[in-house]
Every structure is written in C-alpha cells, then in structure tokens.
Design a protein around this nucleic acid. Structure first.
Length: 108
DNA sequence: GTACTGACCAGAT
DNA sequence: CATCTGGCCAGTA
C-alpha cells in the first residue's frame, strides 16, 4: 500500500479542482471535504506543494476571513487576486471577499 | 528522535 | 481591531 499522504494531496487537489468558476472556498472547507476536518493547514501545505506549476485553480482558495492568505504584494497574491477578479469575484475596499456571496457552498 | 515553522481556524481577552 | 492560546497535520532543520 502506498502511503496515504500522497493520496491525501491528490484528494485535496481534487476538491479544489471542483470549485466552480467565479466562486471561492476556504482551507478549512477544503480540508473538511478532503476527509480531514480541522486540518486546514494540511490544505495550505498541499497547495504550496503545487508551487504555481499546475492547472489546479488554487486561486479560488482563501482563508476563513475571506482574505488572500499569501504575503500582501507578493507575486502569488497579486496573481490570485487578478484571476479571481477576472472570474467575477469582487474584493471589498478592505481587501476581503464577501463569502456570503462568493463562497462555494453559499447561496445568494 | 526533538523542535520549530507554516498559503489555517475558532475562541477568548 | 489587535493579540494570545490551543488545536491540527506535514515539512524541515
């Protein structure tokens, strides 16, 4: 049996890939859907492992506050915001996204 | 093996 | 709003 760790990453990426365009989710939600409730950090580690080279829509994942969890001003953070706005996800002046409106599991 | 860190989270102060 | 605390799991030194 191969270690489950590698499969866990695949699981996480699969969940992220399932986020509809124009919607966002959180690390906690991703972890929960991947079968590891409470392991939000694991989700972050899995996305970091992609290091940008992937077709997985990692930019649709925000932290529980609805904010980009990457260093402000960093290349990755700017790319994430750019791609989300391009998909129709709006950022408030304070730099957060309205989860009530754009969360994957949320209805308008 | 231990210790520290991190694209986290929720609750308390 | 800022700060701290405990919890979670994996990667790194």
């Amino acid at each position: 049996m191969a270690s489950f760790e590698a499969d866990i990453n695949q699981r996480i990426w699969q969940v992220v890939a399932a986020i509809p365009r124009g919607r966002v989710s959180t690390y906690g939600e991703i972890a929960r859907r991947a079968g590891m409730p409470g392991a939000a950090r694991r989700a972050g580690a899995a996305l970091k492992a992609l290091h940008g080279q992937t077709r997985i829509p990692w930019h649709r994942v925000l932290n529980a506050s609805g904010r980009i969890s990457l260093p402000p001003g960093s290349s990755a953070a700017l790319t994430q915001r750019q791609r989300l706005e391009d998909e129709g996800v709006a950022f408030k002046p304070n730099g957060s996204v309205d989860m009530k409106q754009f969360a994957w599991d949320s209805e308008v």
